[in-house]
Amino acid sequence: MDADAAKANLHSYLKHERQAVLDKLDDLSEYDVRRPLTATGTNLLGLVKHLATWEARYLGEVFDRPFPEPLPRWDVEADRLGDMWATADESRSDVVDRYRRVWAHSDATVAALDLDAVGRVEWWGDAQVPLFNVLVHLLAETSRHAGHADILREELDGAVGTDAEAMAAEGHDAAFWADRRAQVEAAARAAVA
């Protein structure tokens, strides 16, 4: 595979995962996209804000193409973890629109650079890293958080998969999942009996 094809493939997967994360916000109330759903406060809108912040860093600062809006600092204790939740003053559209602006900025960086273009990742001990490695890292990180979003959304209203309507059309309704859960629970109990 040539470098242009590899870059296009990685970029395509990244674009898919970005959209998958945003799709998890569809049809949810303002409260549900913001509320903490784990012991550490993980929430859907916070995942979007976090991804926007770090993608702006990796495909901005790293390649000396800074995102033109302020970002919470990773190296200032008071700002740490501030990217993991939205304040009451940050609307859903503020956070989502910012993520889309980051996409445009990041996409321009990817288009402008070759896969072997090297950037400096300050928070990796000033490592010199090629675009290829950064794209792989971002794809892994975005996919990881898309998986978190899948689980959070399932806990909120039972919506599963990247296309809940298609899953329902295939017979994967609430009764199907209740039966599946009971089957998994029975297997778990039998394994420890």
Rank of each mutant, 00 (worst) to 15 (best):
D2Y: 07
L44A: 05
T42E: 11
R65Q: 13
R65A: 10
D83R: 00
G46H: 06
D27S: 14
L28S: 04
L71D: 09
E69I: 05
W74L: 13
L45P: 03
L44D: 07
D2C: 04
V33Y: 14
G46M: 04
K15W: 12
R65I: 05
E77M: 13
R18A: 08
Q19S: 12
T53G: 07
H16N: 08
E30A: 10
P66A: 00
R80A: 07
V48L: 13
W54D: 03
V33E: 14
L28A: 08
D64L: 10
R57H: 15
T53M: 11
F67A: 08
D32M: 07
E61T: 10
R57D: 14
R65S: 09
A52N: 03
K15A: 15
S29P: 03
L51A: 02
H50F: 04
S29A: 07
Y13N: 13
K15L: 15
A3R: 14
Y58A: 05
E77S: 13
Y31H: 15
R35M: 09
S29L: 09
D23G: 05
G41L: 00
V76Q: 10
G46P: 00
Q19D: 13
A6N: 11
P70H: 02
Y58R: 11
W54E: 05
Y58P: 02
A3L: 15
L37V: 03
L47H: 01
K49W: 05
V76W: 12
L14V: 01
L14I: 06
T53S: 06
R80T: 03
A8L: 09
L14Y: 10
W85R: 00
A3G: 11
P68R: 00
D64S: 12
W54Q: 03
A39K: 00
T42M: 15
D79R: 08
L51G: 03
Y13H: 13
E17Q: 12
L51V: 04
H16M: 11
E17D: 11
G60M: 02
F67K: 07
D75Q: 06
L81K: 00
G41V: 00
L45F: 11
L47T: 00
P36E: 09
S12T: 15
L45M: 09
G82A: 10
T53Y: 07
W85Y: 07
E61S: 12
L51W: 10
E61G: 05
H11I: 04
E30R: 08
G46N: 02
V62Y: 12
A39N: 06
G82E: 10
E17R: 06
R80F: 13
D83T: 02
E77Y: 12
M84G: 04
K49V: 03
L25R: 10
V62Q: 11
E61C: 09
L51M: 14
D32W: 10
L45G: 07
R57Q: 14
A78V: 07
L81F: 04
L81T: 02
D83S: 07
T38Q: 02
P66E: 00
E77K: 15
E69M: 09
V33W: 14
P66Y: 01
E55H: 05
T40R: 14
Y13S: 12
A56Q: 04
H50K: 04
A78G: 08
L47I: 13
L28P: 05
P70G: 04
L28Q: 02
R35E: 09
R80E: 08
S29I: 06
D23T: 01
S12N: 14
L71W: 11
A20H: 13
E17Y: 14
